[in-house]
Design a protein around this nucleic acid. Structure first.
Length: 779
DNA sequence: AGTGTGCCGCTTTTT
DNA sequence: GCGGCACACT
């Protein structure tokens, strides 16, 4: 360890690092060296005689945990760092629960259900109850249950809590409480916990078993919490319990970056800290080392529109830098094209590498147009987040075998693979098994094991017995073989791998590769030495527990590869990039249409915008499109209200539309760019008259659109007409294909299809009127 | 019993 | 515009 490590810190940072005993809150503005302080503080603790085994450091994402581990290792040199307990809330608690779950009546090898598994269990229950799953949407019920657990409310309390019951009654969903109760019981029976249980049951455990609480209080004498502003009540209470004995709690947070209230996080926790611990020391880190003055000033001004913040003044010594570039395009595709072209240009002009660029968006669905345009220009990229690797069908199938091997109670997994690949145990048989299990009060697996007693048909019985023999043979390997050996055996016996190998379609090939990747990851897992504070055996159980908590952003692979990063703003928190494109700055997209109905929600969107801006070190582009496809339908959006909150002084509104850049010879960049529209491109930016909202879809008339040949610009007064009115012979307008004539009508009355010929829009097309809508021009 | 087709709902954000 | 799911067809 370097002797002078404290010299690298500024005064405030040093103050935070040197405060070892007692509660400490670090209010760390964006880019103020938070991670540095956290890692240095760990080093400093060790320097001062604290045993690494006694330090617990909790983060929200695996990425953050990994980064912290690596940086501590760099300071300390590997061996001592290994004894630290660093991880996400969920992974750390999962590990502790694996040691203690039996006290709560769960198997220690309990299965962890991800949200898809959980919703699937709920769907089953909702159907069993003969409730309409249109009304009791599994997603919605899941969210209610999740919110309840995150505020430490069990099924019993839920069903008698007046406020909660009122809410459910008002929403006309009186059965949610009952469903919660049944869901909890079903998970228990399956030997499974969902994500929220990892927190909720941890709390129950610590609260209900003083000797367990005492044990971990004694073990974790020093606790550090990153992103404290994102903790929910469950996490808050657990931290309080664990820290109560020593009160060596160090929390780091920034109220301006609180963006997870939808997951139950409450900003109150950070505001409350000083009240909870009256001897708490508070250190504010206000110097930003990351961004230019332009970027930081814009960020500060934007966030100033929020009320009730912890007072702080974020400043920087960095140069002023370039202005923030604001870009408007006609469509989402053109937005993608613009960003790809700008990346190519910036790479040359300023010698950036691919990995210096990030494209940040509000919703995962937006990634598509950027993927396409980057691929066209052969710019390597990687999408972080989105559908996780472990959520893919083929992976879930394979993992279901591993889960059932570990935990035969897990009926969710059992149902998934009992007839996959096909082995003659069909729907009727499964239903029969479910009924038998209920009647005899045993698990489905036990019914299968004793199938002979229950009078199945000979063929079916044979199929069942073969299945039971196979799974039992996997099960028998548990004590003697590591995860990889078992996985290989599963692959062989089930024919899963062979089946996918023989599938020569593109998707089949991709699936085969995914399975290979899964097997590789298991191999890697078994061969990598243990790195955490406790001896972690390389068993199937530990492996399964880990992967459910991983998202594909964590999928070990070449972390440092040179690629453009695409991710949601949420996923970008804690990261920084020299050049950032924040895209899709449109009303109802960002801020999200779901979040414009209350001040609280809107302020969270604004904090999200703040996070997006402050990811940028040197250059920042903000883009938005006039119209984009949503649900396969073209919609027009106004520019985001946030754009109007930025100080003019630091904004370059002419970048994409201005003449000088366009004329630059040889670049070929702007000539075919879609940004066309000339100087008046931003005319609607300045104000949004409230009156406009009432009139149907006002469209700014674009002048001289470059993309007009391929994209029809709808009439200003475009209003779709009722499909029932459409008749052959009418002249109509389509938002994308332009004007056309209906040749013929077909389809059922509630799903009418028009055969329309569009002279300028690509000839004859069948238009499903329920989706793509038409306006009648002439009858 | 297994495979194929059509329909519905969906998009905030994540462990 | 897609994927998951229900139903219908063989």
């Amino acid at each position: 360890m370097k002797a002078n490590y404290l010299d690298e810190l500024n005064e405030r940072q040093r103050e935070a690092v040197e405060h070892i005993k007692g509660p400490l809150m670090i209010v760390a503005g964006a880019g103020s060296g938070k991670t540095k302080v956290l890692t240095m503080r760990i080093a400093h603790l060790l320097r001062n005689g604290v045993d690494a085994f006694n330090i617990l450091s909790l983060t929200f994402t695996n990425k953050a945990a990994r980064e912290m581990k690596e940086r501590v290792e760099k300071i300390l040199g590997g061996s001592e760092a290994r004894n630290l307990y660093i991880g996400t809330f969920h992974s750390v608690f999962a590990r502790l629960l694996r040691a203690e779950a039996h006290r709560l009546g769960y198997p220690n090898d309990f299965t962890i259900y991800d949200s898809d598994d959980a919703k699937s269990v709920l769907r089953t229950i909702i159907n069993e109850q003969n409730l309409d799953d249109k009304h009791y949407k599994p997603n919605l019920v899941y969210n209610r249950i999740s919110a309840a657990k995150n505020s430490l409310m069990g099924p019993e309390e839920y069903q008698v809590d007046y406020g909660v019951q009122q809410e459910d009654m008002r929403a006309n969903r009186p059965m949610v409480g009952k469903l919660y109760d049944m869901y909890a019981k079903r998970c228990f029976k399956n030997g499974a916990m969902d994500f929220d249980d990892l927190l909720y049951k941890m709390y129950i455990l610590l609260k209900g078993f003083p000797e367990v609480l005492h044990k971990y209080q004694h073990k974790f004498k020093y606790i550090m919490i990153d992103e404290y502003q994102d903790t929910n009540p469950a996490q808050y209470e657990i931290i309080k319990l664990l820290g109560a004995a020593h009160e060596n709690i160090c929390v780091v947070g920034d109220d301006a970056q609180s963006i997870y209230s939808f997951r139950g996080a409450t900003i109150e926790n950070i505001l409350q800290f000083e009240k909870d611990y009256d001897d708490a020391k508070v250190v504010k880190l206000e110097q930003n080392y990351r961004s230019t003055k332009s970027i930081l000033n814009v960020a500060n001004e934007v966030i100033g529109n929020n009320k009730g913040q912890i007072e702080k003044n974020l400043w920087t010594d960095n140069s002023e830098g370039e202005k923030i570039k604001l870009v408007r395009t006609m469509t989402d595709n053109e937005e993608g094209k613009f960003v790809a072209e700008t990346i190519a240009e910036q790479r040359l002009r300023n010698h950036y590498a691919n990995k210096d660029f990030a494209i940040l968006y509000r919703t995962n669905a937006q990634s598509r147009s950027f993927e396409e345009s980057l691929r066209k220009k052969a710019i390597p990229y990687r999408i972080f987040g989105g559908t996780s690797f472990y959520q893919r069908k083929e992976i879930k199938d394979f993992v279901a075998y591993l889960r059932i091997t570990m935990n035969t109670q897990d009926e969710e997994s059992l149902k998934r693979i009992i007839n996959y690949p096909v082995r003659g145990i069909g729907k009727t048989t499964i239903e029969k098994v479910v009924v038998l299990a209920n009647d005899h009060n045993i698990t489905m697996w036990q019914v299968l094991e004793r199938a002979r007693e229950f009078g199945f048909k000979a063929g079916t019985l044979e199929a069942i017995e073969n299945f039971v023999v196979m799974i039992s043979s996997f099960h028998a390997m548990l004590g003697k073989h590591n995860a990889y050996d078992i996985a290989l055996q599963v692959g062989k016996s089930t024919n899963l791998v062979k089946e996918l190998f023989n599938d020569k379609t593109t998707e089949g090939l991709a699936r085969y590769e995914n399975i290979q990747e899964l097997l590789n990851s298991i191999k890697e897992f078994t061969e990598t030495p243990t790195e955490d504070g406790e001896l972690l055996e390389k068993t199937l159980g530990t492996y399964l527990q880990q992967i459910t908590l991983l998202t594909d952003a964590d999928k070990g692979s070449e972390e440092n590869s040179d690629v453009v990063c695409l991710m949601t703003i949420h996923a970008a928190k804690g990261l920084e990039f020299p050049v950032v494109f924040t895209v899709g700055l449109e009303e109802s997209l960002f801020p999200s249409g779901m979040s414009i109905n209350s001040r609280e929600e809107l302020e969270e969107e604004r904090r999200l915008f703040y996070v997006a801006i402050t990811r940028a070190k040197a250059r920042l582009w903000l883009t938005y499109a006039n119209s984009r496809y949503r649900f396969g339908q073209l919609v027009n959006n106004e520019s985001s209200r946030f754009l109007e909150e930025m100080p003019e002084k630091y904004i370059d509104r002419s970048y994409a539309g201005g003449g000088s850049v366009r004329n630059s010879p040889g670049s070929g960049l702007w000539g075919n760019s879609s940004a066309g529209g000339g100087g008046n491109m931003f005319d609607k930016m300045q104000k949004k008259a409230p009156a406009q909202a009432a009139s149907p879809r006002p469209m700014p008339k674009p002048a001289g659109t470059a993309g007009a040949a391929s994209t029809h610009v709808p009439s200003p007064n475009f209003t779709p007409d009722d499909p029932a009115l459409m008749e052959a012979g009418m002249e109509v307008e389509h938002q994308k294909f332009g004007f056309g004539t209906i040749l013929q009508m077909e389809g059922a009355p509630n799903n009418r299809i028009a055969n329309v010929v569009f002279p300028k829009g690509g000839g004859e097309k069948k238009i499903m009127l329920n989706y793509a809508r038409l306006m009648i021009v002439k009858k």
